[in-house]
Nucleic acid binder design. Sequence first.
DNA 1: CTGAGATGGCAACAATATAACAACTCGGCC
DNA 2: GGCCGAGTTGTTATATTGTTGCCATCTCAG
Lengths: 148, 148
Amino acid sequence: MPMSTDVLTRAESICQQRGVRLTTQRRRVLAILCASNRPLGAYEILEAMRDGARTLAPPTVYRALDFLLEHGLVHKIESMHAFVGCNHPEHPHSSQFLICHDCGVVTEIDDAAVTQSLGSAADVSGFRAQRRVVEVIGTCAQCAEKNG
Amino acid sequence: MPMSTDVLTRAESICQQRGVRLTTQRRRVLAILCASNRPLGAYEILEAMRDGARTLAPPTVYRALDFLLEHGLVHKIESMHAFVGCNHPEHPHSSQFLICHDCGVVTEIDDAAVTQSLGSAADVSGFRAQRRVVEVIGTCAQCAEKNG
DNA sequence: CTGAGATGGCAACAATATAACAACTCGGCC
DNA sequence: GGCCGAGTTGTTATATTGTTGCCATCTCAG
C-alpha cells in the first residue's frame, strides 16, 4: 500500500491484516489526531468527539488511544501528555520527535544513527530495551527564522 | 570539587557560585531524591517530607523541584512523572536514562554518540534543540539475568 | 439464533500539577 | 538595631491528566 493512500484507509487495512477491529470510536480518534497539525491531549480529543449533543466520557478516548498506541497507529508525546497520529504505521519503528514549543508542531523522524547509537549505549550496560522515548524540545526552522 | 564529595555539599557550592539559595526545603527535596535508589513522584517526596506533624502542600514540593530542575540538580523522568537526583550537576549536560520496569532502577548515562546523532538529526531539519528527553524503558542487566 | 468475547457508556475516583494570594525570611543598608 | 525589598514559603482551592469497576450493548462465529 503506497504512502500516498489516505492514512485512515491504510490503518483500516493494517487492522484487517492483524485481525483486529478499527471500530468507529477508534477511527474517530485517529481521524481527529491526523487532522490536527499538532499533538492533542486526551481531553482535547474528547472535546472534539463531542461535536453534537453526545455525551462522552474519558474512558472511551483512553481505550481508543490504548488500542491505537498498541498497534502503532498513534504515538504519545510524553513531555506534553499528548498524542499524534503516526505517519507510517505499516511496520513497527522507533521514532524521535522534534517539538517546537513556539508553534506547537511536532515532527516525527526516524533517524537510523540515533536508533543505533541508543541501542549500543543500552547494550553497553547490558540493558534490554523495549520502549524508547526520544523527544527534542526547541524551535523549528520556520519559527527560528520568523523570530530571529 | 571532586566527584567523591557528597552530592549535597557539591550542590551547596554550585548554588553559592551561581548566587542562588539552596534553601531548607530545596535541600530536603534534593536529599530525599539522592537517598532514593529510584525515581520518586512529587507526592512521594511530599510524603517523605511530612515526617512529623508538619502539614505540607504540593506547591512547596513542585517549587523546590522547579528550582532544582532549573539548576540541573535533578532530572525529570517524563515517562514516569517522577524525579531523580543528578549524579554530576557540575556542568550542564544532556543525559539519557535507562529505566528498568522490573526493579524500578534508573541509570543516568551521558553517551556522546547519542547526543551527537540526535544533534545532527535535529540540524538536518533546521531545528534548534533546547531540551532533550531520552528515556529507554526495558530490563536492566541484573533483572534480565534473574528472570531469564 | 444464541452465547462468548469484544466494545462502549457511565460514575466515581486517583494521580499529577498549577493558580492566586497572604505571610514570612533573609540579606543589605541606613 | 530597624527597615526595605526581593525572593521564598504557606495555604486553599482548583485544574488537568489518567484509571477503575460495573454493567449494558453490540458483533460475529458456530
